[in-house]
Amino acid sequence: MNIGHQDFYTQAILSMAALVGLTSFLMLGQGRLLRLIFVFALQGFLLTLTTALTAYSLDNHHLYISAALTLALKVMFIPWMLRRQVLLMNMHRDIEALKNNTAVMMGGASLMVFSYYVLHPIVQTSSTIMLNALAVSLSVVLLGMLLMISHRQAVAHVVGFMSIENGLFFAAIVATNGMPMVVELGVAFDVLVAAVLFGIFFFHIRTSIDSLDVDRLNRLHEVDK
């Protein structure tokens, strides 16, 4: 595969995939919550661009709606909500000391390799470009999980959760040019409700443990001690 021989759209999609993957790594190593949220919004914006690009090159109108939804939800509403929470809790100056940052980054890199390995059979049926796009989406999903594991703040967990959604959305756009409209609206609705619920939860967690550090949610055990 020589990238110079591909058409403009494919080249653009590949660069987008690379950038989306990069933002995931940036989030992984980020200890400051406000910056984390900013990078998350950036990832959402890249998704919006990808969707709009696909919509334009395929002349597909319903993808414009998806792009608008992504812009509204992932670039504006969710980052705004999270930012508000952080400021409200006065956490914007805290730097979360990430344990084993090197190991986590190395783990992230191996997850990316793993994604390529898992999805390799797909090459048989389609181009290597598809493999790249899908593997990046899967690694965004897995990196989102790693982000949730390595961070202790509830806000970071929500960012991880939503960035998993981003990975899935990217897969849907690139591999299949979006899902059927009804599914896409449904998913967007679920994301919206989830975001609102997270907001409610922040309030509850704060009132119950007076912090958003999820390590302190440790009352329930598999077996009673």
Partner: peptide
Amino acid sequence: ESIEAAWKYFILCGVGIAQALF
């Protein structure tokens, strides 16, 4: 306890079911 349980439920099932979407 109930808030912890609900948070766990939300995060685990949310992340889990994201795999099903993939």
